[in-house]
């Protein structure tokens, strides 16, 4: 599903990613763990096409298509979803309008019929019920005045509505209480299936107790230093990243 080959990326002229190779097959959940400043968020932004995060070398294929040549909205249309570490507040845009515009944009991209207001409301109600999210959150402006936990729940709701093929979760566990963490993990697990893949970026092992990964990679100094099974996460929890930050230096 996702093939990252020798990916280098620069931010403000500084090379942050220095040759990443990673392949994720449909149905798999991969975790990327690493110390602060190792390039974890940069990887998520390069994958989703944020301005200022340029790939300088290498390629990224998503379902065989060159992802790096696409606009951010085209990548979303193809089925890439980024759960933001810091969801953005958008005053004046009601959450429900945002969700509907996003869903219909993605549906248009895929050549599917748009949902009308009734169909949309019905669909969103099902998702909020499934995730245990209050409908009241739909009426408010996108993320405005939301607590940290509400913002992450909102990311989970967007993911549930858009039903992406590949979900990239960027430090989704940061600043979350246990209930919000469970909501988010729940939404991720609902999406999990033989056709979908996940890339879970995290500093801590905590989230991986709820979203059990197939593979764990240690990112440090812009490269993947080591890969292993889920037991690698436990090892990192005990030993920390000292070994890798040393290796990267």
């Amino acid at each position: 599903m996702l093939e990252i080959k020798n990916l280098h990326a620069t931010v403000d002229g500084k090379e942050i990613l220095k040759g990443i190779d990673l392949t994720i097959a449909p149905g798999e959940v991969h975790a990327i763990m690493g110390p602060n400043g190792s390039g974890k968020s940069t990887l998520s932004y390069v994958l989703t096409g944020r301005e200022g995060y340029e790939a300088s070398e290498g390629e990224v294929l998503f379902k065989g298509k060159n992802l790096l040549d696409m606009e951010p909205d085209e990548r979303a249309g193809e089925g890439v979803f980024l759960a933001f570490q810091y969801p953005v507040e958008i005053p004046g845009v009601p959450n429900t309008t945002f969700l509907k515009e996003a869903l219909n944009a993605v549906r248009r991209y895929r050549g599917e019929d748009e949902l009308d207001a009734m169909q949309f409301v019905k669909m969103v109600r099902e998702k909020t019920k499934l995730l245990g999210i209050s409908d009241e959150m739909l009426k408010r402006a996108v993320n405005v005045g939301f607590s940290g936990g509400e913002k992450k729940r909102n990311e989970a709701l967007q993911m549930a509505v858009l039903e992406p093929c590949l979900a990239v979760l960027d430090e989704t566990d940061s600043g979350l209480d246990i209930d919000a963490l469970k909501t988010v993990a729940n939404s991720v697990n609902l999406l999990r299936g033989p056709e979908n893949a996940m890339l879970v970026i995290t500093h801590y092992q905590r989230l991986l107790e709820y979203i059990v990964p197939d593979r764990v990679h240690v990112l440090a100094g812009g490269r993947i230093q080591r890969s292993g099974g889920k037991e690698l996460a436990h090892e990192l929890e005990e030993k920390g990243y000292a070994e890798f930050t040393g290796a990267a230096a």
Binding site: G49, D73, F81, V88, I90, E101, A102, A105, L162
Partner: peptide
């Protein structure tokens, strides 16, 4: 970027 990352052109 947030809106575009959700598929909105």
């Amino acid at each position: 970027f947030y809106l575009r990352a959700r598929g909105i052109p």
